[in-house]
Design a protein around this nucleic acid. Structure first.
Lengths: 231, 231
DNA sequence: TCTATTAATTGATATTTATCATGAACAGGC
DNA sequence: GCCTGTTCATGATAAATATCAATTAATAGA
């Protein structure tokens, strides 16, 4: 993490959070004047679960994992944070503590914005407030779907679902770098790392995907969806 | 479900959603003039997953279960809806479809309020919007905690956690009617009904709780908490 | 009150998943 | 390039959980 602003302004930022479009010029300037840019190296923790929610975080570049630190040091990876997205857990409006941790996977460029200022804008700008509610709701809806996936499917279904998530939501491509380790894939699907290895192999043996330790290619999308849905 | 209003007005309602305190008298009147009261018998479905989110629902009396209808007709019970609470899933602000179903457990009295009107008030009243965000955030935080509980604990831990939930959040008492069937307890803890029976018996045999088919009494709270936390 | 239906319970067994142990492949530091 | 620590991979085994089958208990109607 290093200081100094590389991004010119929020107004001209190509990775601007889309909800900022509801702010007036003055309001956006207020944001811009109170932002702090930071660059994180792969592996570095960007937000720590339990720490005070003094700032909201906006992804400008790179990828990060958002994860809950659970019982006995076991993590649960919720999602991959991408450029243009707001990172703000529910704790911000409940107990002023970060609900989850965020760690950089690649090099990440991000902006911190004082939560007091953010909250103030929510209060005075109805359209902005509504768009925030939409953002929060979308995350919540995702997490509901995720919950059912994780609770009601067997391992192959859970893993298939995550492989499709990377293809559809993260890389928009049937072929992609697997940026998570087997261990981490396990933390995302609630299974042991050995089981991740075995099921990837099964999927490869049955011709549904190609997989080596760092790359995934979806060969038979229809079948992968079927495995994901069947459970 | 029957028509006719039994509750005098929102203003005087003892089960008023606490966030209504942020509305002006006029705004609250608008709500009051556009509400539709309904009484549900035990077992009746109050909201159906997938149906349009034309209304927000407020619990006035009784208890209901909120649950997601998952894969192969398997349900996942998320929580018990109580008097004074707003029932509005994330779908309301995402895809205009109810994210989950709600069914009455006891006789339930509830008010439907047009979502258009509700949304309008959120837009014009910043404090009300903020309080809604707080409400949504609290639900979301709960669901994050729940997720970790369900994913990282073994059966006894998950069941212990739910027994404590009923004691702490629903009945505020160490002794209570178990209003859910064994099947439903399973749907809440992600386990088979037979396993629910067995673990309840284990907990009873070790003197942690008293349990018969319709009643639960927590005898050794400390130990129950320990089981819940240990996983 | 009696009967039909549903829920609760129990034991036996099968399935799923995790853990342990071990070796191979790989990456970074010097 | 070589050492060293980490991740990946694989088989064997153990643990956790679900399913199946069969009874018993509870409950709602007729």
């Amino acid at each position: 993490m290093s200081g100094g602003n590389l991004i010119d302004s929020c107004e001209n930022c190509t990775r601007q959070w889309k909800n900022f479009q509801h702010l007036t010029k003055t309001e956006l300037q207020l944001i811009n004047e109170n932002r702090y840019e930071a660059t994180f190296k792969p592996g570095e923790i960007m937000l720590k679960q339990g720490s005070p929610t003094s700032n909201a975080l906006f992804m400008a570049n790179g990828m990060a994992k958002t994860y809950i630190e659970g019982i006995n040091g076991k993590n649960f990876i919720m999602s991959i944070a991408l450029p243009g997205r707001l990172i703000m857990g529910p704790g911000a409006y409940v107990n002023s503590r970060h609900t989850y941790s965020v760690a950089a996977i690649t090099t990440v460029q991000a902006c911190f914005i004082s939560f007091d200022i953010f909250k103030q804008l929510v209060r005075v700008n109805g359209a902005f407030a509504e768009s925030l509610i939409e953002d929060i709701s979308a995350k919540s809806l995702r997490s509901h779907i995720r919950m059912v996936n994780l609770l009601q499917k067997r391992m192959s279904g859970r893993l298939a679902e995550v492989l499709l998530y990377f293809s559809d939501e993260v890389f928009h491509n049937d072929e992609y770098e697997m940026i998570l380790s087997r261990q981490e894939l396990g933390e995302m699907t609630s299974m042991a790392k050995e089981c991740v290895v075995r099921i990837l192999k099964e999927l490869e043996d049955s011709g549904v995907i190609y997989s080596d330790s760092s790359k995934i290619k979806i060969l038979d999308r229809k079948k992968l969806i079927q495995i994901s849905e069947k459970g």
